[in-house]
Every structure is written in C-alpha cells, then in structure tokens.
C-alpha cells in the first residue's frame, strides 16, 4: 500500500493537523508520501520531511496553488494521487473543499471525517452530529479520505529525514480566482489544536464581553471559541464556531460559558478530556456532559475565575 497525505499549511508553516493525518496514514500502514502544494512553500516541505514516518515529500510549488483553490488542487491531487492506494487530507475547510473534487475526478467515493482506522478499507466516522458512529467499508481501488485531526495523536514533528522531490505538474483550471481574505488575527493558540479552549455563547450578550474570556484564556494559554448563536449574533467571527458545522475541538480542558449545550455544539467538543460549564440555568443540557458544572451568573463567575486563577498559576 502507498498513501499520499496532502499537507495542510499556509505556505510558510506546516499545520499540526498534517501530523495527525500522517498518524492516520500510519494506522492504515504502507509507505507514506506527503504532497505539499502551494506557492513559495519550501519551508513547509522541509518541515514535512522531518515528520516521523514520512517516506518522501512531493512539492508542487506554483502560483496556481497559492490560495489552495479547490479547482486547481482537485486536478493536481487527482493526477498525483492516482498511483496511490489511499489519499488523505485533514478535514479542515481546505480539505473539505478540494478532496471531494479529487474523489469525483477519480470516480471513487470519499470517506469523510474519519476518527479511527479499522483496516486498510474500513473506517469509523461520526454521523448525525456525532449521535451515531458508523463503521464503513470502501470498495473503490483508491480510497479518498478526510481525517478528523482530533481522532489521531500527531506523529512527532522532528526526527524524520524524507527526500524532497519537486513536481512540475501545473494544473490551473482557470475558472476561479482569489480576490481577498479577512484573516482573524490572534496571538492565541489555534482553536483546533489548543490544549485549553474557553468558549462563549449567547449568554455573553455582546462581543465586548468576550474580553472577559480572553483574559482568562491568556492566563491559561487557551484559545477562545464560541457557539453558533454567538457567531450568528455577530459577537465574534465565524472561525470561532465550535460544533457540528464549525470546528471540532478535543482539548484537555474545555470551558463553556453561557452556552446551553445544543447537540450541534456538543458534536464539536464532547471529546474534550475535561469539560467545565458555567451557566445560570441549572437545567441547561451542557451540565449533562460537564465534569464540573457551576450554576452561576457568568458576569460574576468569569471575573472571579480570573482572580482565582491568578492566585494558583
């Protein structure tokens, strides 16, 4: 078996999710090559070459891939990937965008968002917002798979010394173009891989009040997340949404503040190791999954939390 892992990156650094995907590839077994497609992405290729268990790094460095447009990546990955038994990418918004195109171009099914590998053709994935866990078997000759990073512990980022090979395949479909982006700037850790996440919901009342959570987050080295209601209301940007249709997180500690615990929210955080809920409604469903529940008004509890943490940290 030979597995092609598509690296997730921003042209300058390799995203940790790639290491989780390599771990999924190791669980399948076989030679693992990593494809780095981007523009001026040499540093990413070097980082990928050091990852544990990587056999070879293929680099497609061209302006056509600079913004990871699905039309171009889809064609590239279908072309490079057709010689492999498995093609894997992280189930982030980039992988979700181009991987189904790869599958369609190869005329094979895609298995989305796997959390476990049972064998080379059998995988486990959540369905119905995580209310059911399906074991599915893929019959196509090439398996196109997106991997939920929280399902696999990352391989070591250092220690490997894979060969790096430049590809000169340029696939520019010419039907789409990048216009602009609005990147959320934050010095805090990445939500998807942070060890501690503190999220706010509709109970926060407005965006300014999220500053209270940010102060606690800074003490804990945490990322800040949100419920859909908080994003829809415009308190915080969309990339902070945790849940079935937002980001999936599984930190050591997840603190839900003013979040009721709708099933769609739980789908994104219920694999966290320890869950804390702060909510003034003792009947809120979030308490059914919380290891530690505090029934309190968040406007009193969160400032107190900041003070108490300062004492012990």
């Amino acid at each position: 078996m030979s597995i092609l892992v598509i690296a997730e990156h921003d042209n300058s650094s390799l995203k940790q999710a790639t290491l989780n995907v390599v771990a999924a590839a190791k669980a399948i077994g076989g030679d693992i090559d990593v494809l780095v497609a981007g523009e001026n992405c040499g540093a990413v290729a070097e980082a990928a070459a050091k990852a544990e268990g990587v056999n070879k790094v293929l680099v497609a460095d061209n302006a056509a891939y600079g913004h990871f447009l699905g039309e171009n990546l889809g064609e590239l990955v279908a072309e490079v990937g057709k010689g492999y038994s498995h093609i894997l990418a992280a189930a982030g918004t980039t992988g979700k965008d181009f991987m189904p195109r790869v599958a369609a171009l190869l005329d094979v099914a895609q298995v989305s968002d796997i959390i476990r590998v049972e064998s080379e053709d059998t995988f486990v994935r959540p369905i119905y917002a995580g209310n059911a866990i399906a074991t599915v078997k893929a019959s196509d000759s090439i398996k196109v798979i997106t991997v939920r990073p929280t399902g696999f512990d990352p391989v070591a980022a250092e220690g490997g010394s894979a060969a790096v090979e430049q590809l000169d395949v340029v696939k520019d479909a010419g039907i789409s173009a990048f216009v602009s982006e609005q990147k959320a700037e934050s010095d805090r850790p990445d939500l998807a891989s942070a060890g501690v996440v503190i999220s706010g919901g509709r109970g926060m009342q407005n965006g300014d009040n999220f500053k209270m959570l940010e102060q606690v987050a800074d003490l804990l080295g945490a990322a800040v997340g949100a419920s859909r209601a908080a994003v829809d209301a415009g308190f915080v940007p969309n990339d902070m949404q945790v849940g079935q249709t937002g980001k999936i997180v599984a930190p050591q500690l997840y603190v839900a503040v003013g979040i009721s615990g709708a099933i769609q929210h739980l789908a994104g955080m219920s694999d966290s190791k320890v869950i804390v809920a702060i909510n003034k409604d003792e009947e809120a469903p979030i308490f059914q999954v919380a290891d530690y529940g505090l029934v309190a008004d968040l406007f009193e509890a969160v400032p107190q939390l900041e003070e108490e943490l300062k004492k012990v940290l």
Partner: peptide, 22 residues
C-alpha cells in the same frame, strides 16, 4: 460504493459534579 458495516451509539459522557463556587 461504501457499505455501512455497523452503526453504534457514541460512548456516553457521564455528567460530573456541580461545584459550589469558583
């Protein structure tokens, strides 16, 4: 092209404890 071998309920999380204060 994909066959579902089985569908299971997710491992249920146990509700923990309520704490009195921060």
């Amino acid at each position: 092209r994909l066959s579902t071998l089985k569908v299971e309920a997710p491992a249920a999380r146990q509700a923990g404890v309520k704490v009195a204060d921060v």
